[in-house]
Amino acid sequence: MMPDLEVKLEKELHKDVCVVACRFPLPTWPPAVTLGTGMDTVWVYRNPWRISNSCV
């Protein structure tokens, strides 16, 4: 399910948008920032196929 979501996000996100995920990381995108631990972990991503400024 998450790989399908990655493909959808890659196609539809604008370059200046960030994605924030909790509980489940995106499997192949490198996070720009990771906060917390365990079930409280939050990942912040930029679309890896589009160059943009940092989300944080």
Rank of each mutant, 00 (worst) to 15 (best):
M1I: 10
M2G: 08
M2C: 07
M2N: 12
M2T: 15
P3A: 07
D4Q: 11
L5W: 08
E6S: 08
E6W: 10
E6T: 00
E6V: 03
V7N: 05
V7T: 12
V7Y: 07
V7I: 14
V7D: 05
V7G: 03
K8N: 07
K8W: 08
K8M: 07
K8V: 06
L9N: 06
L9M: 11
L9Q: 04
L9H: 04
E10T: 09
K11N: 10
K11H: 05
K11F: 05
K11S: 14
K11R: 15
E12M: 08
L13W: 02
L13H: 07
K15W: 09
D16E: 13
D16W: 12
V17C: 01
V17W: 00
V17I: 02
C18R: 03
V19A: 04
V19S: 11
V20G: 06
V20P: 00
A21G: 06
C22M: 11
R23N: 15
L26K: 05
L26T: 03
W29R: 06
W29I: 02
W29G: 02
P30T: 14
P30F: 08
P30N: 15
P30A: 15
P31D: 12
A32M: 02
A32N: 03
A32E: 11
V33T: 10
T34A: 15
T34P: 04
L35S: 14
L35E: 14
G36Q: 12
G36I: 14
M39P: 14
D40I: 14
T41E: 13
V42S: 09
V42P: 04
V42H: 10
V42M: 12
W43Y: 15
W43Q: 06
V44I: 08
V44H: 01
Y45C: 00
Y45G: 02
Y45W: 00
R46Y: 02
R46G: 02
R46S: 07
N47S: 08
P48D: 07
W49E: 11
R50N: 09
R50W: 03
I51M: 14
S52F: 02
S52D: 04
N53L: 07
N53V: 04
C55P: 03
C55K: 01
V56C: 03
V56A: 05
